[in-house]
Nucleic acid binder design. Structure first.
Lengths: 151, 151
DNA sequence: TACATATATCCACTAATCTGGATATATGGA
DNA sequence: TCCATATATCCAGATTAGTGGATATATGTA
């Protein structure tokens, strides 16, 4: 099991917004042989299920804290083994990280992976089309302005 | 069939970032009885398939232009009826709009719906947690700066 | 009206996903 | 060492998703 830092670095390398670099617009069925594409789809699939979306949201909400698997199961009101299966899906998609502490395994959200997913999706908007991006950015301006975090 | 403008307005009302308003963090299995949650999951599911993700990307790339169903099928290298089924999924998720012109049915991306999806996802980041949002925003700064579109 | 073109729908098959009881594995404590 | 606790894994059944041939429907043209 990686340290949290190591895991975060690993997740940061999962997604590479390279899809649009190879100009496959003429053949836009995303090839499943393309690692990046499969990972994006895997991540979308992982979140496209009620229990898993709820779990991911809860983990993001408490980040950088972690929640034990059993606790996630209880709060989701699903059997322990079902939650284990769900967490495995999120793990495989790189959206969560886990760490064993005694008898418990704690899970936390991987924000870099989430960031990469959103970036990959929004890339469609920004890539040479800033006029499409601006309305999207405006959604976050209350958050943005409040911290004056403009780089 | 709605006009493009009417359809865009309709899509803009599909997503409401209300989930986190009702403080269901203690019960974070997203209820399928909640319309908004089902739509988010439907949208994620719709994009979590290679052909459909590719189609959506292509449509976003040419927005506000539209592409006929047959053209989408040819360029995706899938049979016509398979593409029709995929487009139906995207339609049901509200991510695309269609309009018949003669024998063809043209499809275009619904950017408001896409925006709402991303907003809903990123809401997890921004909602009272701007320090989590800033790194995400920095991803778009090249795009942002180039147009000086800060609201 | 007949034929052509474009695309949705039907239908059936296969594969994948979800779910939960049962069991295996890992760790803690007496 | 034995028992308890936490959770992953196994297994099977039910459900859903993806796919493509065949057919139905909608529109265009002569």
């Amino acid at each position: 099991m990686d340290t949290p830092e190591q895991f975060q670095e690993k997740c940061a390398t999962v997604f590479h917004p390279e899809l649009r670099k190879n100009k496959e617009l003429e053949r836009f069925r995303v090839s499943v042989k393309n690692e990046n594409a499969l990972t994006i789809i895997e991540a979308l699939s992982a979140l496209a299920q009620p229990t898993r979306l709820g779990v991911f949201r809860a983990l993001v909400a408490v980040e950088p804290q972690a929640i034990p698997a059993g606790e996630l199961a209880r709060r989701s009101v699903v059997p322990q083994n079902t939650m284990s299966a769900h967490l495995a899906v999120l793990m495989r998609a790189g959206l969560v990280a886990s760490e064993r502490r005694g008898r418990s395994i704690l899970y936390r959200a991987s924000l870099p992976a989430f960031q990469a997913l959103v970036t990959s999706l929004v890339r469609d908007c920004c890539d040479g089309r800033p006029e499409l991006c601006a309305p999207l950015l405006s959604q976050f301006s209350p958050c943005h302005v409040s911290k004056g975090a403009l780089p």
